[in-house]
Amino acid sequence: MTHQVANEIVALALTLRIAACAIVLILPFGILAAYGLSRYRGPGKSLIETLLALPLVLPPVAIGLILLELLSRSTSSILFTWKSAVIATAAMSFPLLVRGARSAFDAIDPRLADVARTLGRGPLYVFWRVTLPLAWRGVVGGLLTAFARALGEFGATIVVAGSIPGETRTLSLAIFQHIEAGRDAAAMRLVGLSLACAFLCLWSTERLLLRSKRGR
């Protein structure tokens, strides 16, 4: 029993660690992509948006296979290590972060950044002091949604990272393994844990966005 509980804590800690690493990895790119998409008006805009949204609708195992192909070409071996789980998770959560952050950037009056420029401030300063502070709720909201998605990642992870206990066996992989092995009670305990984590993330997102709607 205690051994099992220890295993569950390992799986939970691992899941949180992999999801957190994935989020940290995609955060700068996600914000940049969201901001770029929000401002970009040139040709190919809808093509770029479609490409970015693809991981939302493609089967996760398909993403896994693509990543497997890409990663097997790199010289350093990161496949079937926790790093590959991070990459798979990052790829799957990226579009959610971009979506959340992007709608926040879209909601900002573009004239604010314009005025800030005429006040003698360069684009970078304006981004840090005006655009990002005004979008932060949406960015954090997108981040939490992406994090919730990261916690539940299964399909892409199992293809590129396998299900190695203590290294890549996250909550969802552990649940699957318990079901296969006929340990339904253990599986259900992990389902409860996942549920709690996902609930916390989504609930905080809702609270955050609700508050931002009520006015800043």
């Binding site: 004239r111 314009d114 005025v115 420029r117 005429t118 006040l119 003698g120 401030r121 360069g122």
Partner: peptide, 12 residues
């Protein structure tokens, strides 16, 4: 000249 170097005030 980018806007931040023009020294033109703007009240939209």
């Amino acid at each position: 000249l980018p806007p931040e170097q023009r020294r033109i005030g703007y009240v939209p």
